[in-house]
Computed example of a mutant assay.
Amino acid sequence: MQRRHCLAWLAGLPFAAGAAGTVHAQDKDKPIQIIVPFGPGGSGDISARMLAEFLTRKTGRAVVVDNRPGGNGIIGVEAVRNAPADGSVLLLATTSTHLANPSLFRKLPYDPGKDFRLVGSFGPGSTYMLVRPDAPYKTLQEFVAAAKKAPGSINYGHFNATSKVTGALFAHEAGIELAAIPYKQVSQAMSELIAGQIQVVFTDTVAGDAFVSSGQLRALAVHSDARLKRYPALPLIAETYPKFTIRGGFLGIAVPAATPVDMQQKLNTWINEAVTTDPIRSRLEGFAFAPARVSLAELATFERQEREKWKGYVDIAKLEVQ
């Protein structure tokens, strides 16, 4: 999606730690900024840019998407935590930043439950298990057989907490050994997979869709609530491994916890309208997401429950806490 907004607007936005949220929400000339804590081309970046287009039309204000990758999303999250709590700076919240990181880092510099409030969701997502089109394994069973024949010889690329835990949990459930190769961005992992440097990547269907539809990569299986309408022959991972219940990638919008409730409600209303109205609704559904209207209270409950589940996933996968 082409950038429509000049990055020069960023210069006027206050990000310094301790900056007071004193700017009035009524200032309709102030840009809205959506900070994406990961690099361009990923699911968060794509979703944020769709929402930016909608909010520009809805509010008449400039909406800028700013990618702040690094540290499993921590750098971008910290930028929003220290921003004014007036609804002008939004965070693209993900499974990694709000659900998985608390279980993967001993000294996480933020508390997603205390420092932020979720105000919107793009809907439950799904996850592709991707390999090269010419990979010697054509089915999930053949992949597992190859991994068992040569333990540790198959590398999986991960680029955030979600993809790391998903790969480790799959290896645990399948009884195989996969070598984990870290990357800073999803685009790097995809490029390395296409080049044959790694053998498999687990990524959400938003980020993986273009690679699957173009034939650059092949999906061996998908993790979703049901088989995808676009690819009905593509099996679910859970059909073979019923205990593989890890939820597909979560994407939402969060604001600093001190943001006034009326502003949180306004943002919730706008985001609910955006994700349930075409063209965004159709695009999300095409990516195998299930957009729906979700209240602030429902989002809070979802976050608490899913974060607890991720503690269990990390324990089962026996991942070392950093």
Rank of each mutant, 00 (worst) to 15 (best):
175 G>M: 12
131 V>M: 00
299 L>A: 08
71 G>T: 03
289 F>E: 14
297 A>W: 02
141 Q>N: 14
181 I>C: 05
87 G>R: 08
74 I>L: 09
163 S>Y: 04
174 A>W: 06
11 A>K: 13
32 I>C: 08
136 P>T: 02
124 P>N: 11
43 S>I: 06
173 E>N: 11
195 A>S: 12
115 D>R: 00
137 Y>N: 01
57 R>C: 00
277 T>S: 15
4 R>N: 11
127 T>D: 14
126 S>N: 06
193 L>N: 02
129 M>A: 15
139 T>V: 05
84 P>A: 11
128 Y>C: 14
239 E>M: 03
144 V>E: 09
88 S>G: 13
71 G>L: 11
178 L>A: 01
33 Q>G: 06
294 V>M: 15
307 R>A: 14
320 E>H: 06
268 N>Q: 12
257 A>I: 03
141 Q>S: 14
7 L>F: 12
136 P>F: 03
205 T>D: 05
181 I>D: 11
251 L>V: 05
239 E>C: 06
305 Q>C: 00
159 F>G: 01
218 R>T: 12
174 A>N: 11
149 K>T: 05
150 A>M: 00
110 Y>G: 04
61 R>V: 07
96 S>Q: 05
89 V>M: 14
23 V>Q: 13
300 A>E: 15
23 V>F: 08
176 I>N: 10
52 A>K: 07
245 T>A: 12
151 P>C: 11
89 V>S: 11
213 S>Q: 12
158 H>A: 03
312 G>K: 05
59 T>W: 09
211 F>D: 04
34 I>K: 08
233 A>T: 14
183 Y>K: 03
317 A>P: 10
152 G>V: 10
12 G>P: 10
233 A>H: 12
221 A>S: 13
7 L>W: 09
1 M>G: 15
124 P>H: 13
9 W>V: 04
95 T>E: 01
77 V>E: 10
100 A>Q: 02
202 F>G: 04
48 A>S: 15
304 R>N: 03
106 R>T: 12
1 M>P: 12
276 T>C: 09
40 P>Y: 02
217 L>N: 04
112 P>K: 09
240 T>R: 12
135 A>L: 01
159 F>Q: 02
246 I>E: 12
261 V>C: 00
265 Q>P: 00
96 S>P: 04
74 I>Q: 15
248 G>H: 09
228 L>T: 10
253 I>F: 06
104 L>Y: 09
246 I>T: 06
67 N>P: 05
105 F>A: 09
52 A>R: 09
12 G>S: 12
195 A>H: 06
287 F>I: 03
17 A>N: 05
311 K>M: 02
246 I>C: 04
119 V>G: 07
242 P>M: 09
143 F>G: 01
211 F>S: 11
37 P>R: 02
65 V>Q: 11
111 D>T: 07
41 G>Y: 00
18 G>L: 08
77 V>D: 05
69 P>H: 04
322 Q>K: 11
99 L>K: 09
27 D>P: 01
159 F>L: 03
85 A>M: 07
257 A>Q: 15
105 F>E: 07
286 G>K: 09
209 D>T: 06
152 G>Q: 10
320 E>K: 13
92 L>I: 01
321 V>F: 05
181 I>F: 10
312 G>C: 01
88 S>C: 08
224 S>G: 07
106 R>F: 08
281 R>C: 02
102 P>N: 07
286 G>H: 04
182 P>L: 11
